[in-house]
């Protein structure tokens, strides 16, 4: 690329309507003068990324705990009735925490919500109890190899599609399609795994535990993410420790593999992202589509809205 000579620069104007003497491919010195690089770029810090990775660690730790529980049930090392009680207790504990986070709401709505939750939890409990003989024989004819492969891929789907964003206590947004798919993936994985168990009560205990871990816990986890960082770190360490503690007696190889996975997610992946930011090259100029600023009148107050980016094509 040669440097623009600038011989016509006193004459060159950024207009198309004037008759001109210079050539059509003349490169003025002001060419690309308005180009700006990384104008609104705020680099991530390592500490922030490590704390943000807690959500992923928690999610994966729950899957590992679930797998360890399944192995214990299958090997008859764990009494299924104990697991049912643990599930019920953790449900009560989780629900109390949930209520604690929402304590500032008015009393009437809390009471109706509480009644609704009690009703639906009893319904789910009874439905699972009734369905467990069917769930046990549903995929019984499928060979174990296929079951392991299928459940592994469903859990991977669950990890990939899960919603790791935080959700403030006051907001009530609807779940995104991907997070619904993620939950379905994990529940289906539990269903196919349940067919390897021996009796109905084990199936029932496993399914109850899977609902706790993959349907209810993620909702609570997203609310926890708005809490101060130390609390999150404690929760993460607790779940991580539990997953390793439950796995270690079963297989030390798997436990060390888990530890490697956690170390990668918490320390190496954020470092890689921080390193990759040096290649960030965001260019802006006057060719960029403008973002319309439109005032929307809603109720009493006015607010400024930036129109939805995804709609622009």
């Amino acid at each position: 690329m040669t440097k623009p000579s600038g011989e016509w620069d006193h004459e060159w104007e950024r207009v198309l309507w004037k008759q001109k003497t210079y050539a059509d491919n003349y490169v003025p010195t002001s060419f690309l003068a308005t180009l700006s690089k990384n104008a609104n770029f705020r680099p991530y810090t390592y500490g922030y990324l490590v704390s943000a990775s807690c959500a992923i660690t928690q999610h994966i730790a729950v899957i590992f705990i679930f797998l360890a529980t399944f192995v214990r049930l299958k090997e008859r090392m764990l009494d299924p009735r104990l697991l049912v009680w643990v599930s019920i207790l953790s449900f009560v504990a989780g629900y109390s925490l949930w209520e604690l986070l929402h304590w500032h709401r008015d009393k009437a709505s809390r009471l109706t919500d509480c009644a609704k939750a009690a009703k639906s939890s009893v319904l789910v409990f009874l439905a699972l109890l009734a369905l467990s003989p069917i769930l046990r024989t549903l995929t019984a004819a499928t060979s174990s190899d296929s079951i392991w492969a299928l459940s592994a891929s469903l859990f991977i789907l669950n990890v990939l599609l899960a919603d790791y964003t935080s959700l403030s206590v006051n907001s009530y947004n609807h779940e995104r399609l991907s997070s619904v798919l993620s939950m379905n993936g994990a529940i289906s994985a539990s269903v196919v795994l349940a067919s390897r168990l021996i009796d109905d009560i084990s199936v029932f205990a496993l399914m109850l535990f899977s609902i706790q871990s993959f349907a209810l816990f993620p909702m609570l986890r997203r609310r926890f993410q708005t809490l101060p960082t130390p609390l999150q770190l404690v929760l993460t360490a607790l779940l991580l420790g539990l997953s390793i503690y439950f796995t270690l007696p079963l297989s030390s190889t798997i436990a060390s593999l888990y530890a490697t996975v956690f170390a990668f997610i918490t320390f190496i992946a954020p470092a890689a992202l921080v390193w990759a930011q040096r290649f960030k090259n965001e260019i802006r100029g006057r060719w960029d589509p403008a973002v319309p600023r439109v005032r929307v009148i809603e109720g009493h107050g006015k607010r400024t809205r930036r129109s939805d980016h995804t709609l622009r094509r």
């Binding site: 950024r14 198309l16 180009l35 100029g285 006057r286 060719w287």
Partner: peptide, 10 residues
């Protein structure tokens, strides 16, 4: 246009 040219060159 001149803007189009800058855009295409980039």
């Amino acid at each position: 246009s001149h803007t189009g040219r800058e855009n295409t060159v980039l």
